[in-house]
Simulated assay, not measured.
Amino acid sequence: MIPYERQKKIVRLLADKDLVKIDELQTQLPNISISTLRRDLKTLETNGKIEYLVGGAIKAVMTTSELSMSQKTMLHDEQKQLIAVRAAKEVCDNESIYIDSGSTSSLLLNQLLDRDITIYTTNTTIFNISGEIKATVILLGGHYNPKISSLSGTLTENNLSDLYFDRAFLGVNGVDDEKGVTTPNISEATKKRLIRTNAKQTYLLCDSSKFHRISSVRAFDLENVILVSDKGDAVISKLVPILLPE
């Protein structure tokens, strides 16, 4: 069996379990020597396919790609609504806030439109809202990504560089205790980094299905942020506060 085939089989075996020890893995691959198995595992770790844990256990690294807004809105809808309601309680009148793109962020927008606040956003779902609103809404310019209803790029970054927020609410694709906050898109990752720098307090809107998932681009690590989610996580809660529905 060539290395590629062995490594593919290893990843497939790991995908069925949360974690596994090397000796347990070898029992499922009796035709592979322990030295060969260790070399394959090292290659998989270098390629970001697996992760070694304390105590010699191994787990597959779960990656996530960008879904369209229509797909996102159908996933974990109840949890996202609870997160939006909880996040809205953090906002005080007369504040200046930023709301990101994403399905949970769109729900948060709807929660805050009747508040006496200023909302800056790159979330183009704001155009779906009709009728009178109390909030002052400022849509920042940039390159339009119709798949995720978002504006980003150089123009957006230039606008954001001179703006400062009392609070910022960011959507994420993955949150991991080691890899931090990740997204599939370089321009979105750059935008999120700039916003976190310019906000007094940054919140991550993240349903629990995104815990320990990793997308292709790192935005920043889990420092100076607050997570708003539908449930807690024993590992991530050691690094950041997690706000839960009341």
Rank of each mutant, 00 (worst) to 15 (best):
G55E: 05
I83G: 00
K49C: 05
S68I: 01
M62A: 14
M62K: 15
K42A: 15
G48V: 03
L44I: 11
I83M: 00
E78Q: 08
G56S: 12
V54H: 08
Q79H: 02
K72A: 04
I83H: 00
T73H: 13
D77S: 13
T46Q: 14
L67M: 10
G48D: 05
G56E: 12
G56W: 10
T63R: 11
E66D: 06
G55Q: 08
I50N: 01
A84D: 02
E45D: 14
T46S: 14
K72M: 12
Y52A: 09
I58F: 07
I58T: 03
K80Q: 01
T46Y: 12
S68M: 01
E51R: 13
M62E: 15
K49Q: 14
G55M: 12
G56T: 09
K59V: 07
E78K: 08
G48P: 04
T43S: 14
K42T: 13
T46P: 03
Y52R: 12
I83P: 00
S68F: 00
A84S: 09
M74Y: 13
G56M: 09
V54G: 01
E45T: 11
G48L: 05
E51F: 10
A60M: 08
K72T: 02
S70L: 07
S68W: 00
L53I: 09
S70F: 04
G55T: 06
L75C: 09
L82D: 08
T63K: 11
D77M: 11
G56P: 04
E78P: 00
K49F: 10
K72N: 07
K72H: 05
A60I: 07
A84C: 05
L75W: 09
I58R: 02
N47T: 06
M62S: 15
S70Y: 04
Q79E: 11
Q81A: 03
T43N: 14
T46V: 14
L44S: 08
Q71G: 01
Q81W: 00
E51M: 13
E45C: 07
Q79V: 00
I58K: 02
T46W: 11
G48W: 03
M74K: 15
G56R: 09
E78T: 08
I50L: 04
I58Q: 02
T46F: 13
H76I: 01
M69N: 07
Q79I: 00
Q71L: 08
K72G: 04
K59W: 04
Y52D: 03
L82E: 12
T46D: 14
V54M: 06
V61R: 07
K72E: 10
Q81P: 00
T73A: 15
V54E: 11
Q81Y: 01
E66G: 12
S70T: 08
E66Y: 03
I50D: 02
L44H: 09
L75Q: 13
M62F: 13
M69G: 06
A57T: 12
L67R: 11
E51N: 10
G55L: 07
V61H: 03
A84F: 02
L44M: 11
K80D: 01
K59H: 05
S65I: 05
G55H: 08
M74W: 10
I83V: 01
V61P: 01
G55D: 06
I50W: 02
D77C: 09
E66N: 06
N47V: 02
S65G: 07
L82A: 13
L53W: 04
L44Q: 08
L44E: 06
T73M: 15
I83T: 00
